[in-house]
Design a protein around this nucleic acid. Structure first.
Lengths: 193, 193, 193, 193
DNA sequence: GATGAATGAGTCTTCATTCAT
DNA sequence: GATGAATGAAGACTCATTCAT
């Protein structure tokens, strides 16, 4: 077997484990998923897990990074495809895309919400293909050059979205997500003005 | 011993366990604190724990509710004592008080940040002595009667504070807490205008 | 309060505990009933239990003795009331009465079957009002004076009934109880011939 | 190590646990034997127990099935070796063999007596090498073709033996086992006539 | 006699991790 | 690289019993 074939086989095992962990974390939750469950579901031996991941927390981080990046990339690509030029509209479009995705996948929202630490989130933003922070800073400058610190603005936007949509989507608190959206969007626009 | 004496003794036992759990959760973290640790530290028998609490999660919730209420009440009382009349200044004062408390007690911040669910937080706001939500709504109305939905505004303020000060205090991200404060306060003022 | 009144009150407490234990043993089973359950159900304090019974096994024995005696006494009285004169018919009548009772109260059958040790059973036969062993020996002698050892015959009859009706009533093994009865009765008649 | 070697090793571990449980159940009784005791005595780790058995009840059932089968098989083989041709004599021989074994191993008798439920007993009769029920039915037919329901007869014989020898061997009630044997054998002969 | 808070030994069970094959 | 049997520390929880009131 050629070296690349072996590498490929390894990648397949790793992906199997990631996919297995993803499914189980969503359906049973992180705490109630054991490494045993993950390897059983993936159809590999228990020892194999430790060839690819350090422990349960390690694979959880990998799962979240992968899924979050995917989601954000999709949201950006979608905005680009729609040829939205104005920065404020673009931000709202991206936010809206992400919210709608979470509405349809509440388990993912729960998983991310409970486990997305800061260090992790920065890794997410350092996506392979798009440097989100830089892009945001650049576009915000073009849109409103009075803003001194675009990083802080991005940070506050992300925090406000990240923390407030959770209970809106899951508990309809303070309002249902569709009622809440206008308030949220208004506030975001406010932040970049 | 009279009944009230017995009740008093029971209360003392309960408080001992709460204080013990509080200390250990802050120093070792929730996961690494066992019920064994809690009862040892409190100097009571293991069975006694189950007389007062259902399990580790139960006592954690009680600890967080108690400490959070205490902190918010203190912040409000402090603002009242300083005879701050203007609503916007009062809000900033309260926020500032809470932030300063967390700066000095980062372990509490970590504990609360990781564990303050929404259901729990609502219990905190239903403090025995002060109905925070109503008070806020009333004062906001007097301050700015154009705002339609004071509850949503309170919610957004709490979410923005709650989620963003954590990484600022703990990681200096996006800025150190003292550098971040002006941005945060400006945004809060913005929200009630 | 007069002494007899006090005695009466004590008896009431004891009876409450017995009745409570009886109900719980039948519904939840012996192992899954704790002393806590018994005193809660009886509405008395935990310490009170130990004023009347040594432990869970003690009260279980008392429950079984009481209920078994009651059942046997009823069966005998019923046979007497029906003026059955022939000894073999009387034995069958009594057996039949007991079986029918168990058919209607399978939980009691289960409890007794699992817990009726020999020592216990002898206490049951020494009922306050009727000395069953003596009575049986006397009547068997009149019926068939060739039998040397009536005690052994009684013993074998009781063992055969006691062990075989259980699985017939509960599992229909080897036959349903109504199909099994003729075989059983035939065998009993055989034993006293 | 080849697969069969591994399987063999697993079998040895299982057997160790079974033997350990057997010894401890006999000497201390089932209730007073903890899983801790079993694994300590077997010299394996606690987790290993759960690799082979669900819980204490599971291993108890396995122990009883194994030992009962062994005993019955031995009794039958012994009868066959002695070239006993007449069916009635064969039954008595088998019964006698089993009784004598129990006389020498009263702890086993106690264990089996307390725990041999019906479901379990049927598993015992479905021994790997000898189908006891069929064999009995066949031989009984040859011996006495007037009997309609050989299964019921076998059932009654087993029940009578199983329940009555216990108190005879353990308590000499109603007679010592040697005095009781003639009565019992007579009755068994009666049942197949 | 009655109470019920307090006890703490004892038990089961899980599960991450290792390592010989 | 892959396997999965074995490990054993760690933890949650129960419950019979006591005893001060």
């Amino acid at each position: 077997m050629s070296i690349s074939k072996i590498e490929e086989k390894k990648q397949i095992k790793r992906d199997k484990l990631l996919a297995s962990a993803y499914t189980l974390f969503l359906t049973r939750g992180f705490i109630d998923t054991s490494i045993n469950d993950i390897v059983d579901y993936a159809g590999v031996a228990k020892g194999t897990f430790y060839l690819y991941f350090k422990d349960k927390w390690d694979i959880k981080d990998q799962v979240i990074i992968e899924k979050s990046r995917l989601l954000i990339d999709e949201a950006i690509i979608n905005a680009n495809n729609k040829m939205i030029d104005k920065f404020d509209e673009k931000i709202i479009s991206i936010t809206n895309y992400i919210i709608d995705d979470f509405i349809n996948n509440k388990d993912l929202l729960k998983l991310i919400n409970k486990n997305l630490s800061f260090g992790l989130f920065n890794k997410v933003l350092e996506s392979e293909y798009i440097n989100i922070k830089e892009m945001f800073a650049q576009e915000l400058k073009n849109y409103n050059n009075k803003i001194k610190n675009p990083e802080v603005v991005l940070y506050m936007i992300i925090e406000l979205i990240g923390s407030s949509i959770y209970s809106s989507i899951i508990y309809d608190i303070p309002l249902s997500i569709n009622e809440y959206k206008p308030y949220l969007f208004e506030q975001i626009i406010n932040m970049i003005k």
